[in-house]
Design a protein around this nucleic acid. Structure first.
Length: 772
DNA sequence: GCAAGGTC
């Protein structure tokens, strides 16, 4: 009797083999793929891990040429399933041929069932062995043994639901992407692909909606009446209960009524103790959000770091939906491990807190895939820096460790006080918060808050009023989305999965639809115009509903309410309907998009982009020919405007410099001089001092001139604007910036940032009073 | 050249 089982991945296969064989198994390879073998109860077992999907849907070759195939035809063409990982397919065939029974043992979810069916379809071609399914929700001993003792029938509906998703996503993505890309290419010279997809487009849609809200925002005036009260030498602020007065007259009336008041009376007081529980264990989504919020990391980079931490054994597998620990999770040894290195003090505190055992604050999601992200090995900063190729490696590790420990600690306790104060019958509110017990926040400084103190005070007591103000402000527009907020929106709307959400964000960036600046995401012209054009012609595709519609269809397949063909037909009809909306609005849409694409594609070539042509306001660029180089207009041959350039020297376009004589740009030529396009060498120009003001550091100690930074080809130093002869050295290496802050001696503080090092800020004055 | 979903 020979049993063959297919798991979703190599790691799972090894784990299953280890459990079923009680550790007595051997690893062999077949077609380069690991197979785990053992004998048990007279049966020969062989377990192989797949590599996620080993097949994909795609269109047959004759549909590959974009220009020959009308994209609309793709919607009515059924894609075919191709093997993408041939070695795995070969190994499956060879194992299946030699089997009496086959067990599918992939993850128990849609994609897992689907991956199992990929193996099933290959096996069925070479053998007639019965094919069963082992269903388990975690790789724990109990679950695995039970699942393999009672295998069930494979769930064709579950597998088909994933198939429906694959086919519909492909049809829509391919048809829309080709159509938009080709139509825009007819109008604008661009090589780039303008992609559309059922996940990437709504993702961009969120960013677009926010941008629109910002653009359409009209600030409103409002007035806020605030009072500063004093009691027992403590000043605190109260706000009129109305909050924002949008009616100036009403605000003025209230203000006039109380502006001369010298006292107020406490009319109510409430003290409430509130507990703040530790955060749930980290699943991928939560991890990415926090890495963005606390560390300013974009999700792609954060996941890459987590992956490296995982591969070097410091933390657990980073892709998980689960935010709940299994009952038998071994906290004892994990926390003990952490007492060995940098987080020793924190880990010991957790031990102190856990005399009656460890009590994690568990979440509610158990996707039964992997445990929440947690530390495996303790480390010092150096260990992480050696293992992770990213300067933020340590910060990410530290976050994971602290999150893990915080989760095991007591809630933090705050005392919140709210008092109500009457000032000539107008009610003011004041609140205070005092931390009574730090609990988990002690190990989790990311969420620490400062206390807001209110004086000890009782009802009916009188308070002195220091000041009453009536301030006019304006409502502010919504803020740009952060990556963390975008991930939340995606998660809420079912866009993408734990493993793919960051990819969708990356795709949008790669296409030039939006970018991340600091923590916030800002949309680029291409993204905005594309979304705007789509929103007008095919509104559904920009909104998360598109995903929900497909999700509903495939859920019906999973539930057996619809056949695979039925769901595909319905989905195809929906795509067709959207596609006809798209094509009927073609002209307007294309001209709208083409306008921005053209400029951006030239501008993106930043080595050559110069500025606007004064003749035709198109874009100027550097043209290099066999005979030399010059600045020419991208409108050539219609516009023949040109400017000369020096023959020698590397050219560097100084975007931060503006020519006061109106030249389109200033170019740095080698290390020697600057050249304003169309005007000539800047240092022979009478406006030199205005375009290139000296970088003053401070007063010259020798005369009444100022010390300024002089940079030459191979050195830099400070010289006097009066040329009195006094000079002084500055650090030779690192990027040097003169800050606005000044030292007590009057000189500006200088910031020096060397590669791979922390920036230093200090006073460079040799004669600084602090040094004497 | 195109999607989204697995995995590494």
């Amino acid at each position: 009797m020979s049993i063959v089982a297919f798991a979703e991945k190599n790691k799972a296969a090894a784990q299953i083999a280890s459990i079923l064989s009680e550790g007595n198994f051997e690893r062999t390879t077949l077609e380069g793929v690991n197979v785990y073998e053992f004998k048990k109860d007279g049966k020969q077992w062989r377990i192989m891990g797949l590599s996620g999907h080993i097949m994909t849907y795609d269109y047959p070759q004759e549909y590959n040429n974009w220009k020959d195939v009308d994209p609309g035809v793709l919607i009515d063409t059924m894609p075919e399933q191709f093997i993408t990982k041939q070695a795995f397919a070969n190994a499956i065939s060879r194992l299946a041929k030699d089997s009496d029974e086959i067990i599918l043992a992939c993850d128990y979810d849609r994609e897992g069932e689907n991956i199992g069916f990929e193996a099933k379809s290959i096996a069925e071609k070479v053998c007639n062995s019965p094919i069963k399914r082992a269903r388990f929700s975690s790789l724990s001993t109990g679950e695995i043994k039970k699942a393999f003792q009672n295998p069930v029938e494979p769930d064709v509906n579950l597998a088909n639901s994933a198939k429906a998703r694959q086919i519909l996503d492909l049809k829509m993505g391919v048809a829309f992407t080709r159509y938009i890309t080709l139509s825009v290419q007819q109008k604008a010279r661009t090589k780039g692909v303008l992609s559309i997809g059922p996940c990437q487009t709504p993702t961009c849609g969120f960013v677009y909606e926010r941008e629109k809200a910002i653009k359409e925002f009209e600030p409103r005036d409002f007035w806020k009446i605030e009072a500063v009260f004093t009691h027992n030498d403590i000043d605190f602020q109260g706000t009129h209960r109305t909050g924002k007065f949008f009616d100036k007259q009403k605000a003025d009336a209230v203000y006039n009524k109380i502006s001369d008041c010298k006292t107020g009376q406490v009319t109510n007081k409430k003290v409430k103790e509130t507990k703040s529980s530790p955060p749930y264990p980290l699943n991928t989504n939560e991890f990415l959000k926090r890495a963005s919020k606390f560390l300013g990391l974009n999700s792609d980079r954060a996941l890459e770091i987590a992956e490296q931490l995982y591969l070097s054994g410091f933390t657990s597998y980073p892709r998980t939906e689960t935010n709940k620990y299994a009952n038998d999770f071994d906290f004892q040894s994990r926390v003990a491990e952490l007492t060995k290195k940098a987080h020793k003090e924190l880990a010991l505190e957790v031990f102190k807190n856990s005399e009656d055992g460890f009590n994690p604050r568990n979440g509610t999601k158990d996707a039964q895939d992997h445990p929440p992200i947690h530390p495996i090995k303790s480390a010092n900063k150096g260990d992480i820096n050696n293992a992770v190729n990213d300067s933020k490696g340590w910060d990410v590790y530290d976050l994971i460790v602290r999150h893990f420990l915080a989760n095991l600690m007591q809630p933090a306790v705050f005392e919140k006080t709210r008092i109500e104060i009457s000032v000539n019958d107008e009610i003011f509110d004041a609140t205070g918060t005092v931390k009574k017990e730090s609990g988990w926040i002690w190990v989790y400084p990311f969420e620490a808050k400062n206390d807001k103190i209110l004086p000890e005070i009782e009802i009916n007591e009188k308070l002195k009023i220091n000041k009453i103000t009536n301030t006019n402000s304006q409502t502010t527009p919504p803020k740009r989305l952060t990556e963390s907020e975008l991930l939340t929106l995606m998660d809420k709307n079912g866009i993408g999965t734990k493993a793919t959400a960051p990819t969708h964000i990356e795709t949008n960036k790669k296409r030039g639809y939006f970018e991340t600046k600091g923590k916030s995401i800002s949309i680029l012209d291409t993204g905005f115009t594309l979304m705007d054009a789509l929103d007008k012609s095919v509104p559904l595709i920009v909104k998360p509903e598109i995903r929900a519609r497909v999700e509903q269809l495939i859920q019906d397949v999973e539930d057996g309410k619809k056949s695979l063909d039925g769901a595909i037909n319905e989905g195809t009809a929906l795509i067709k309907q959207m596609y006809s909306q798209l094509t009927s609005n073609k002209d307007e849409m294309v001209s709208q998009i083409a306008g921005t694409i053209y400029d951006e594609s030239v501008a993106a070539d930043s080595d050559n982009y110069i500025g606007k042509c004064s003749e035709c306001s198109r874009v100027l660029r550097i043209v290099t020919t066999d005979n030399g180089r010059f600045v020419g207009c991208t409108g050539y041959p219609e516009c023949k405007n040109t400017y000369p350039l020096p023959k020698k020297g590397a050219l560097n376009i100084m975007k931060s410099r503006e020519c006061k004589k109106g030249a389109p740009a200033v170019i740095k030529v080698g290390n020697k001089y600057h050249w304003a396009v169309g005007i000539g060498p800047c240092f022979k120009c009478d406006m030199e001092n205005e375009c290139f003001p000296p970088e003053i550091v401070g007063q010259c100690p020798n005369c009444d001139g100022y010390m300024f930074l002089i940079k030459t080809k191979d050195s830099r130093f400070l010289g006097c604007t009066n040329k009195c002869g006094y000079t002084q050295s500055v650090p030779k290496s690192g990027r040097l910036t003169i800050l606005d802050d000044t030292c007590e001696c009057g000189w500006n503080i200088v910031r020096v940032k060397e590669k791979e090092k922390e920036a230093k800020e200090f006073c460079v004055n040799r004669k600084c009073i602090n040094k004497l």
